[in-house]
């Protein structure tokens, strides 16, 4: 089982649509896939038409009553399941602090019992750097980081890089930033992209355009490739998925963990 966090310190960068579409493409290829909606806003649960509610909330989940296994819901798509969000996740840092030992390893611990049930887990992470994100960094094999080509976004990437860099234990976590919500008409985007690509050689080559189809996911409440399989932005997501697979599953010494 591989774990990929879709993560950004900044909100509104296309994180949830990336998580949902990557998960859909993964399951469509035959991988048993789980999306864990860790964002208390519950956007990916909403996209899959699943109520953002976990019995007993995040605290109960940390006590493993109920077990993770018992709160997973099947989506409308084969091989694709979802662990719904819960509003209590907004207090997750407090709950994690309360863990008796190893407050940064709680997510890893919770996922252990279902390791054999899924080939890929995609974590839809809440924005910000917090105890929760440290849990995510520890559990994940890779972080897929959407970056809007703007100076502010680039700063958060620096922050993340600095945060991960100073923490030795996270050294093996692979950072996979990519450009998201790219507006081809804006020359500033193109310039920023060129600059950032130089500064961050890890930057994936696919960029996801700003497109009305992506915004309509909220109306369809369905992954984009399922209702607009032929659109250009769907093709972009497919390319991103291919790059992600190559990075995470490649056998040539690029194992992340």
């Amino acid at each position: 089982m591989k774990i990929i966090g879709v993560y950004s310190i900044k909100g509104g960068v296309g994180k949830t649509s990336t998580a949902v579409n990557m998960a859909y493409l993964s399951a469509a290829e035959g991988r048993r896939t789980l999306v864990w909606d860790l964002d208390p806003q519950g956007a990916s649960s909403f996209y899959f038409r699943i109520k953002p509610k976990v019995k007993g909330g995040g605290g109960a989940l940390l006590r493993r009553k109920p077990e993770l296994d018992d709160v997973i819901k099947g989506t409308d798509f084969d091989l694709l399941d979802l662990l719904p969000a819960d509003f209590s996740y907004r207090n997750m840092d407090i709950l994690l602090e309360g863990a008796k030992k190893r407050p940064t390893a709680q997510l890893e611990r919770l996922l252990a019992p279902i390791r054999r049930d899924y080939d890929l887990v995609i974590l839809d992470c809440p924005p910000s750097i917090s105890l929760m994100s440290e849990n995510i960094f520890r559990a994940a094999n890779a972080l897929l980081v959407p970056v809007i080509p703007s100076t502010l976004s680039a700063r958060t990437l620096d922050q993340l890089d600095a945060f991960l860099g100073k923490d030795n234990a996270q050294g093996k976590l692979r950072l996979l930033p990519f450009f998201s919500m790219v507006d081809a008409a804006r020359s500033l985007h193109a310039e920023t992209m060129a600059q950032l690509s130089q500064d961050y050689p890890n930057m994936l080559s696919t960029s996801i355009p700003q497109a009305p189809e992506v915004e309509r996911m909220g109306l369809h409440r369905t992954p984009l490739p399922a209702y607009a399989p032929a659109s250009a932005v769907t093709s972009a997501y497919r390319e991103l998925w291919a790059e992600l697979v190559a990075a995470v599953y490649s056998k040539k010494g690029r194992r992340l963990r």
């Binding site: 899959f48 038409r49 699943i50 109520k51 099947g74 409308d76 409440r221």
Partner: peptide, 10 residues
């Protein structure tokens, strides 16, 4: 056939 709930979820 699929049975849907009020959110049109299968």
């Amino acid at each position: 056939l699929r049975v849907l709930n009020e959110d049109d979820k299968t």
